[in-house]
Simulated scan of single mutants.
Amino acid sequence: MSSRTARRAQVGAVAVAVGISVLAVLLVLAAWRNDRTIESDMGTATAEVLSAGSLRSAVSFVTPDGVTHNPKLGVLYPTNLTAGQRIDVEYSRADPDLVRVAGRDARVAIVPAGSVIVVTWLVALPVLLVLRRRARSDGSGSS
């Protein structure tokens, strides 16, 4: 491996790790922004869980004006829900499709995002060390 190729591989590995880390941080910031939007004009309701998954759960709830809402993107922070369950939700009255499980907020996104960042760097650092060793051994062998 030429030193130029090794350098490019190192830069690529760092770029991927930094990119994944930035995306994880952006995920938490987006959750925080959604929470601020909900809290700025909050409505509450009891919702029925239509389907439940670890990443997306569909809910249906009725707002005080009698309109039934079934947010396309599901409910925020859907862990530990089961289909048929009735839960309290908090939603943005300005945008009832923005809804979260009552009592949950962006703090529940911190641990998963932090875990993604830690695992990313636990993989990236050994890769960088291997690439660095290869670059050194190839550089010393070609002198």
Rank of each mutant, 00 (worst) to 15 (best):
S3K: 11
R4D: 15
T5N: 06
A9W: 14
G12Q: 06
G12T: 11
V14N: 04
V14I: 10
V16C: 13
V22K: 03
V25W: 01
L26H: 12
V28D: 01
V28T: 00
A30F: 02
A31I: 00
W32H: 08
R33L: 01
R36D: 01
E39K: 04
M42P: 14
T46Y: 07
T46P: 05
T46G: 01
E48V: 15
G53M: 02
G53K: 00
G53T: 07
S54R: 09
S54C: 02
A58C: 04
S60T: 15
F61R: 05
P64W: 11
P64T: 07
D65S: 14
G66Q: 01
G66R: 03
V67A: 09
V67F: 09
G74D: 09
G74L: 03
V75H: 08
L76H: 07
L76K: 12
N80I: 04
L81G: 12
G84K: 12
R86F: 06
I87R: 00
V89H: 04
R93S: 09
R93F: 05
A94N: 14
D95C: 12
P96T: 13
D97V: 08
V99N: 04
V99M: 02
V99D: 05
V101Y: 06
V101D: 04
G103I: 08
R107P: 00
V111K: 03
V111P: 00
S115I: 06
I117T: 10
I117G: 03
I117K: 03
I117E: 05
V119P: 02
L125E: 05
L125W: 06
P126F: 11
P126A: 05
P126Q: 15
L128V: 10
L128Q: 13
V130W: 14
R133K: 09
A135V: 00
A135S: 13
R136Y: 06
S137Y: 10
G139L: 08
G141H: 09
S142K: 09
